[in-house]
């Protein structure tokens, strides 16, 4: 899909043009296209930020509610150099990350284990599927007050919320991945001499892996949501708490600054995940990935 514009741009060569010339031209066209994409991305970013800044500056929008890019940058700078109302920024960020990371790892490990376990056992999955569906239809964030009530304002309640948000996504995908494993491949492994455990390890888990990874991409975002919603409901530190305080003091810049922080962290986590996935999935046919 991405190479259709290239095709259109490709020049028609004179007869007798050497392969090297054609390759060089194609390479150049590819580079030009990459640069064009980058250029337009920057234009859009600068355009939006500039328009926002200008609109706030000229009071076309109320900076009290909408803040402005320069205001947000200044608030971030202030947080970094002087710390926030609730102590250092890094500490607050760490608190949120700790909650999200523990919830993410615990939730995805549990999700994978339970998903594969139930996926391999028809009887158990028939029994539990109805309960899982029922629990899955609860919007997970409504559990936040209950967790805070039971586990208090500290780490545990946020981890529990992040866990429950991650668990179901990963579980559902791992379960589906196990179900989609090729029956011939399983039969092949068994005839070659694999025990049940060997079939699980060498056929089921690898073939469920791409499903599991697809869910891990989304679920880190879910872990962050869990941690931050938990902090909204009740906490002493964390990015959610910073947002909550900013809201209480009508500090729009503070709210946007916190949002940008979370966005950057999640983007970083996403990048790390993609790197791990590419390394693990080197057996897959090369596919046309979208332009980076």
């Amino acid at each position: 899909m991405t190479d259709t514009p290239l095709e259109n741009m490709a020049p028609i060569f004179r007869a007798g043009t050497s392969d090297a010339e054609i390759e060089a031209a194609a390479l150049k066209a590819m580079q030009r296209r990459k640069q064009a994409v980058l250029f337009w991305r920057l234009v859009i970013l600068v355009g939006i930020l500039g328009a926002w800044e200008l609109a706030a500056n000229r009071l076309w929008i109320d900076p009290f509610f909408y803040s402005s890019p320069s205001g947000i940058v200044m608030r971030l700078y202030e947080w970094i150099t002087e710390g926030t109302a609730e102590g250092s920024l890094w500490f607050n960020l760490w608190v949120t990350m700790e909650e999200a990371l523990i919830g993410f790892f615990a939730g995805s490990i549990a999700g994978v284990l339970v998903g594969i376990g139930l996926g391999r056992n028809q009887f158990l999955s028939d029994i539990f599927s109805v309960y899982i569906k029922a629990i899955n239809s609860i919007p997970r964030v409504v559990l936040a007050p209950i967790f805070i009530m039971i586990m208090g304002l500290g780490l545990a309640s946020k981890v529990a919320l992040a866990f429950i948000m991650v668990f179901f996504v990963v579980f559902a995908n791992a379960f589906q991945g196990v179900r989609e494993a090729d029956r011939n491949m399983i039969a092949n492994a068994r005839i070659l001499g694999a025990s049940n455990w060997q079939v699980t390890r060498t056929v089921i888990v690898p073939s469920a892996m791409s499903w599991i990874f697809a869910s891990l991409h989304v679920s880190f975002g879910f872990a962050i949501i869990g941690a931050i919603v938990g902090e909204f409901v009740g906490a002493r530190f964390g990015i959610g708490q910073l947002i909550s305080i900013a809201k209480g003091t009508f500090d729009a810049a503070g709210m946007y600054a916190a949002i940008i922080l979370v966005m950057l962290v999640t983007l970083l986590a996403e990048m790390i995940m993609t790197m791990i996935e590419t390394r693990l999935a080197k057996w897959r046919p090369q596919q046309h990935t979208d332009m980076q």
């Binding site: 491949m185 492994a189 070659l192 001499g193 060997q198 060498t202 056929v203 073939s207 892996m209 897959r284």
Partner: peptide, 20 residues
């Protein structure tokens, strides 16, 4: 095809003896 796509050729062929 019942080969394991995530294993290279030699690991595919080795599967039987290793399972056994």
């Amino acid at each position: 095809d019942a080969l394991f796509p995530w294993r290279n050729v030699i690991d595919n062929v080795m599967a039987g003896p290793l399972f056994r």
